[in-house]
């Protein structure tokens, strides 16, 4: 019996836009268990981004409950939410969001700076370890401008791993990358999921990317349209190996 990481019940989110009320989420319920690799799909305007913000504890639902690793998010203050993000969530963004002119190591150390329980040496050790996990051990001192897009995204994944979160939350993490690099990132995600048992929630609009996950939740117009287990999950590694080797880029 595996542990529930996400438990969402009848979640609604409404925004007040002048005199109009925009109902972005109209009642969503699902659960995610530890070790799952879930993609959340949907076209723009489907409520994908709103759901992501709530899952990432950046926003709170208007109505409904959200339990993250057993914590009732609704009851938390702004500062407590920040603390929760720091301990339980690892973000990976589409635009990487690395600090410019800062080494990969220091970028990865960043979340631990906001955790006062971690000493300087432990912070460094964990950051090096996280960079090793994304196969960037030789690039510790490189700044983002010295790294390729795929490498930058891997630094961002290392940053998401370093605080040992219960869930990695990726927002269109392959959106800025070419297909080969996207497959590399997905291969890394699958590896983290299968070998280290990380729970991954991956928001995307590309069905191609979703096929690498074990489960897909399809959003449409603020509701869950489809929630399916992926019977034939593709292996990104195999797809990568099957790509024609070209040297024209």
């Amino acid at each position: 019996m595996s542990k529930k990481i996400l438990d969402i019940r009848e979640l609604k989110r409404e925004f007040q836009m002048g005199s109009e009320t925009v109902r972005a989420l109209k009642g969503i319920s699902f659960e995610v268990e530890a070790g799952e690799f879930v993609t959340i799909m949907g076209s723009s305007g489907s409520g994908k981004t709103t759901l992501l913000n709530i899952l990432g504890c950046l926003d709170k639902p208007s109505i409904g409950d959200y339990f993250l690793d057993g914590v009732d998010v609704k009851k938390l203050s702004r500062d407590e939410l920040a603390q929760l993000r720091n301990r339980k969530i690892g973000f990976v963004f589409q635009a990487y969001n690395l600090l410019p002119r800062t080494s990969a190591l220091e970028n990865v150390e960043l979340p631990l700076l906001y955790n006062r329980e971690i000493s300087v040496s432990e912070r460094r050790d964990r950051a090096i370890h996280a960079l090793e996990a994304v196969k960037l051990a030789e690039r510790l001192d490189h700044t983002p401008s010295q790294l390729s897009g795929g490498q930058q995204q891997r630094v961002a994944i290392a940053r998401a791993l370093v605080n040992e979160p219960v869930m990695i939350l990726a927002d269109e993490a392959t959106g800025n990358l070419d297909s080969r690099t996207s497959y590399e990132i997905m291969s890394l995600m699958q590896e983290l999921n299968s070998q280290q048992g990380k729970t991954i929630v991956f928001v995307t609009h590309e069905p191609d990317i979703a096929s690498f996950s074990s489960r897909t939740i399809q959003l449409r117009d603020g509701r869950i349209q489809k929630d399916t287990q992926n019977a034939n999950q593709r292996s990104a590694k195999e797809v990568l190996a099957g790509l024609p080797i070209t040297d024209d880029y």
């Binding site: 702004r78 500062d79 993000r85 720091n86 969001n97 600090l99 979340p111 906001y114 605080n163």
Partner: peptide, 16 residues
């Protein structure tokens, strides 16, 4: 602004 957003998303409080 983006850096601030990032820092907040990885756990910085307003106070930090």
């Amino acid at each position: 602004t983006r850096e601030i957003g990032l820092r907040m998303s990885i756990g910085a409080r307003g106070k930090d």
